[in-house]
Design a protein around this nucleic acid. Structure first.
Lengths: 143, 143
DNA sequence: TTTTAATCAGATAAAAATATCTGATTATAT
DNA sequence: ATATAATCAGATATTTTTATCTGATTAAAA
């Protein structure tokens, strides 16, 4: 079982938070991210590539190349990463796995789950990642 | 990506809710459950077997055999199914996938996620499945 | 007593998620 | 110029989850 998000998505969020905690414009290599966050090198590489394709981060090749955020951290939210990797489908599918769960055909816990889902969405949407910089740094220090 | 629970667990919850919506003591075959809930026959079979091993449901073999709840629906909660199939690990692991996320080493969204996790747990813990009978029946009618 | 319809146990298969490998390309630094 | 250190693209491998198969056992019904 996953805790809501796939490993890819979890790693992607961690990496984006890490990039956001760097000095603006700093290029960070996949190797570096892999070591700091303890994520398999080749795996985070692939994830970074796909985030680049989505336009969330940018990269430069060659020696001393690496990755950096494509825009200011004050304009990026965690939901952007989720959207790019896992997609937003989970925010309108049934927690019990029933098909077409809706107000007209609610599952047994539909009314309770609705607000929770909304709050989860809000958690990912309300804050931009620049606001999470300090917390990110102190978490990384403890890894 | 899953929506919190594995398919096994979703199907397990659906099946247990369905059993709870039957007349007390009714034996329901895996075939029947499979058809009503549109779950692959052999797959739900395995899930029912494992729920039997966990003691949540009981079975009788032979012609006109089948499955029924092992105790009164007023004493079963959805968390029992989750606990038996997916385990409760998700309720204390990090939503961003960081290891050892805790109040002393919180991840960037630790404080926001905590209450949400608790509410999710409450959703599965507060109501016994007999309370969900009517809603289950009306959902099943729409499948 | 035989047929039938069910669970049960264990093996296997298929699909998806996670992870790694290989070699090409690129750009900096020596 | 050349060596080095990085991304990139595509293939491959491994692991986990989801799903199916096979045959044995059981018990009710014919």
């Amino acid at each position: 079982m996953t805790v809501i998000f796939s490993k890819k998505c979890e790693y992607g969020m961690q990496a984006v938070l890490y990039l956001a905690s760097q000095e603006k414009g700093t290029l960070v290599s996949a190797e570096d991210i892999s070591k700091v966050l303890k994520i398999p090198r080749e795996f985070i590489s692939k994830i970074l590539q796909s985030l680049r394709e989505s336009g969330l981060i940018s990269s430069s090749k060659g020696k001393s190349g690496g990755f950096t955020l494509a825009k200011d951290p004050s304009r990026i939210k965690l939901i952007d990463v989720v959207s790019a990797i896992d997609g937003l489908e989970m925010f309108d599918s049934c927690v019990l796995g029933f098909p077409e769960c809706s107000p007209t055909h609610p599952c047994p816990v539909h009314n309770i789950w609705g607000p929770l889902r909304t709050q989860t969405y809000d958690m990912l949407t309300s804050e931009t990642i620049d606001k999470l910089k300090e917390k990110t740094l102190s978490k990384i220090r403890s890894l």
